[in-house]
Design a protein around this nucleic acid. Structure first.
Length: 200
DNA sequence: AAACGGCCCAACCGCTTTCGG
DNA sequence: GCCGAAAGCGGTTGGGCCGTT
């Protein structure tokens, strides 16, 4: 996990999973100084991480407006639609799914949707080379939707979603879906509650 | 109960784009 | 217009978790 510097002049750079302490340092620093200029932020905050790593951690996990938990049926369909339109432009797609990160959408696509596409490929005899990418995607996805869409039959749209605009107050008070987060030792609710308690 | 394999996701890597001097 | 640094982006991977045998 730790990368030993081969050059003694190089500052030690940590890699691998972030610890709770590092997360707290980053959150506190950004709460006080704002985000941006990540390399100097990492140094100033005293984190032994690259600016890139700090930025990624903040954007994908620590930001108060990051939505975690299951992708909803609506989001699922939107991802399919936008991917058919734009392909692997994950950040562009993510902009249309408030609170979702490009990384999350990318992972979701690869692990859930692409899997179904590959499965459906095995059942289809259509010559794919006669279709363009978006046609292929739409056709293939018609085979992937039912399995996931079954989930949506019991899906109730969350009224909080539309008002989810990064408000820490809303964030703290929300009943966050935790189904896919149970492996997390600590939650972001804890962090932001702490932030509020300390008034930072 | 242990071993195994597949799934999932956080985080890294490398390339490209943007920005400031 | 050029160059270097920073930021953004998409692809890939390591490792933990969980279900199955």
């Amino acid at each position: 996990m730790d990368k030993r510097p081969c050059n003694s002049h190089e500052p030690e750079v940590r890699k691998g999973p972030w610890t709770m302490e590092e997360d707290l340092i980053l959150i506190n620093y950004i709460a006080n100084h704002g985000e941006g200029v990540w390399n100097s932020l990492a140094r100033s905050a005293g984190l032994k991480r690259t600016g890139k790593s700090c930025r990624l951690r903040w954007l994908n996990y620590l930001r108060p407006d990051v939505r975690r938990g299951n992708i909803t049926a609506d989001e699922h369909l939107l991802i399919i639609e936008l991917h058919a339109k734009w392909g692997n432009r994950w950040s562009k797609i993510a902009k249309h799914l408030p609170g979702r990160t490009d990384n999350e959408i990318k992972n979701y696509w690869r692990t859930r949707i692409q899997k179904h596409i590959k499965q459906s490929e095995n059942f289809t005899t259509l010559p794919l080379n006669n279709m363009d990418q978006s046609t292929f995607t739409n056709q293939a996805l018609s085979g992937c939707v039912p399995a996931d869409y079954a989930i949506s039959q019991s899906y109730t749209p969350n009224p909080a979603t539309s008002s989810f605009q990064g408000s820490m107050q809303n964030f703290q008070g929300s009943n966050f879906p935790t189904q896919s987060n149970d492996h997390n030792i600590w939650s972001m609710d804890d962090f932001w509650s702490m932030q509020l308690l300390h008034g930072d």
